[in-house]
Design a protein around this nucleic acid. Structure first.
Lengths: 214, 214
DNA sequence: ATCGCCATTGAACAAAAGGACAGTCAGGTA
DNA sequence: TACCTGACTGTCCTTTTGTTCAATGGCGAT
């Protein structure tokens, strides 16, 4: 069990923190210059309230003062954006400052074992946003389609209905469906919306760095 | 402590599973029709090997047989793509089938408390991918929507189906539709595809007919 | 306390989308 | 010529989407 340090602005400790980690230290956080803990031997619980000092910058600063330590951010007003920001800044956990002791201990055990902790809501948003773009992005998707399929696919990507496309291309609605089915198959998507995302390059996941880290 | 059920194709149990949960059940998984467990009272460990039966579909099928239960996927050949797929399908955890007992128990404790479990690698990828993208979503339109409508609209813009969104937000599919109908109305679009184009800021204008009718 | 907004859901319904199976026709190639 | 591919179409059927009508409960404002 590593040492637990709570960093907060107002030097008051929340009852839940004590309940979770009776032996933890409490420090005011503009801890200038001095080292906070022996490298890699502590879990830093960083309490942020609002965005006065940018939480992400704060995380980076604290990371400098406690190299190798896990930083978990406790937010008074949690939001997906803030969570995203601090995690990107190097925090390994993000949760509500009022989380119950069980959850705090849960988080501790996860991060102490090298894991990251993200709340279900944020996580699901991440998954939702990522899921469609993970499937093999090649930018030259349209090249995989025949001329006609391409026309139909582009119309769909522009938001047209099958009926509209049929009228526009002067073919039956049935044929539009046939071309679409072929396009879905060839591009490996399951419906017109994902086809649209693919063609419109909405994913742009190709630019996301692989990130091997830690 | 909930009941633990391991579903696997070959009816052999891995030593690590036993070590982690001595009292767990082991079942072959094409368990047709019959209910697997009392609703919400079990953790289902779904063992997948390769992609013969699509893991994501399998998750959905099992979810139907064990409503309210947590499904954790154990993969013989884990990949970010597979993880993403099963999590999107409703699984609440994804890890290597050979994970050591400590990790399995860790995962169990997380999901039993309503959390999602995603390995550090995949999670980092999600965060990295999201952080670069989250700024470019067209928020001006989203401001016209209520908090809940926004969540649904964003999921749709990411390519999710109503069923998936319902599962993700833990509401009925009917409610998803209600939020969507409201969002269409407020943003002046006629269906999910055009909503996606609007939110993702896709410049379509030229090819997409205004179409007020209906 | 009444009003309006929001979140939620049910039932029923209509329309759109998509899959399965089957078939014609034109053009190019082994 | 036999074979293949792409474009095109039909019918039948299932699933998904979206609407209409209707209702409940929470919550903040007047």
């Amino acid at each position: 069990m590593k040492q637990h340090i709570f960093l907060t602005r107002r030097s008051e400790t929340l009852p839940t923190w004590n309940a979770a980690f009776p032996g933890a230290s409490l420090l005011p956080y503009p801890a200038s210059g001095s080292q906070l803990a022996r490298p890699g031997e502590a879990v830093i619980w960083l309490h942020v309230a609002g965005d006065k000092p940018d939480p992400a910058l704060l995380v980076q600063e604290v990371a400098g003062l406690a190299p190798g330590c896990c930083i978990v951010v406790l937010s008074n007003v949690p939001s997906d954006e803030e969570g995203l920001a601090v995690l990107e800044a190097g925090a390994v956990g993000y949760t509500n400052a009022l989380a119950v002791p069980e959850v705090l201990r849960q988080i501790a055990s996860v991060v102490e074992n090298g894991g990251l902790w993200v709340g279900p809501n944020l996580l699901q948003r991440l998954i939702a946003g990522m899921a469609t773009r993970s499937t093999q992005v090649n930018s030259s998707h349209l090249d995989k389609l025949s001329a006609r399929e391409k026309e139909v696919a582009l119309a769909v990507a522009g938001g047209a209905s099958n009926k509209e496309i049929a009228r526009r291309l002067e073919i039956s609605e049935r044929t539009v469906k046939a071309h679409l089915t072929a396009a879905f198959e060839r591009l490996g998507v399951r419906d017109r919306l994902q086809l649209s995302l693919l063609i419109n390059g909405t994913p742009q996941a190709s630019s996301a760095p692989p990130q091997t880290l830690h």
